[in-house]
Amino acid sequence: MNPITMNKYKLIIMTDDKQVVLERILQVTRYRGFLINGMTAQVNTGNNIATIELLVSSDRPISLLIDQINKLVDIKSVAVDNSSSQRCSA
């Protein structure tokens, strides 16, 4: 992967706040070929839904990662925040 030309994306992930869900997301992200550039996570204690914002970069299409994260059992939704995603040019 060439970090200069990689696309950067911001993912908004909504998930049930279950055991190791954050580890699962990070493991899938790494395994599928995406670098993690930043992350925020918070849990709504009222409904036990966590919102995770993940900044990632990769040469690979973001749809590949979205589909794989979506397969995780506890995930409710995955969306790309287009306003924050960009393609970096050299």
Binding site: Q19, V20, E23, R24, Q27, Y31, V73
Partner: peptide, 12 residues
């Protein structure tokens, strides 16, 4: 439990 993340569909 940690080791299972990469070799199971899900784990508890």
């Amino acid at each position: 439990f940690g080791l299972s993340l990469a070799c199971t569909k899900h784990s508890f």
